[in-house]
Amino acid sequence: MTETRYIKAINEALHEEMTRDENVVIIGEDVGAPGGAFGGTRGLLQAFGDKRVKDTPISESAIVGLALGAAMKGLRPVVEVMFADFLPVCMDQIVNQIAKTRFMFGGQFAAPLVIRAPGGAGLNAGPQHSQSLEAWFAHIPGLKVVMPATPADAKGLLKSAIRDNDPVLVLEHKALYASSGDVPAGEYLVPIGKADVRRTGKHVTIVTLSRMVLDSLEAAETLAAQGIDVEVIDLRSISPLDRQAIFSSVEKTSRLVIAHEAVKSFGIGAEISAMVSEEMIDVLDAPILRVGAPFSPVPFSQEREYLPNAADIVRAVEKVMNY
């Protein structure tokens, strides 16, 4: 274990996977000598050369589509899209092509590729550079979507994503890039589709992901001081969703709060809430509450006010407890 920054953990994963498998190639804007807009691909060009680390023009549709074709030819492309907000620029390739290749062609072709893209707010980057769009992609059969909250998961999930035989969208959080935590050196895989219980508790379950894991853990501390014992589940994978982890926790606590940074309406919280209601309505002692952002684009100057935070989670848990 070494204390490593989130972005460094991503970089480590890429180094290790490129070393392990010569079919892993890196594709994206400024991923070569500059090492990526946020430093994720730093040193890869020097280590592996420009045959495997491909700087591209600003052409998101072309580069994401190219990754699909290359994957069909046996490569393992890892595409970097500089901000998750630019995924809509190449949405056809992702949704109509990449996600459906295996299905439409009866399994004759596969799309084992990874798209890395930083989402989330926190840098006052404004409406077109701050969004959390995971629900869009989780809604598409054929795609896998993961969202690491810690440096260790950033490494372990990315390594698993590169080895996965299906397309995986890795939504990193740009406000977490500078955060650090213990990361196992060398081979370390986090299975896709497995949530992590980040804190055990018996009164309320908080299901959360990405940056909101930190807010949820902070809220749990505050609530512990009031005698409320919170269990925090970090989803890590949005699709496939670890339904069992959620069910087991709610079985124990009978209360559920879901916290995400994305706009609350039509978010993944709605899916989880519906799923738990369908499966275990008899177990619930209170309505399921969601914490998410207001129904507005991410504002530039009022970002802090706009974003859901630990205090919002505390309020939701209190409400569930007082029901």
């Binding site: 006052n124 404004g126 409406p127 077109q128 550079h129 684009p297 504002p299 530039f300 100057s301 009022q302």
Partner: peptide, 17 residues
């Protein structure tokens, strides 16, 4: 650009918009 209420876009957008 300073993100103020009387900015042209009500402070919603900043320099890039």
């Amino acid at each position: 650009i300073f993100g103020r209420a009387n900015g042209a876009c009500h402070g919603n957008s900043g320099s890039m918009h």
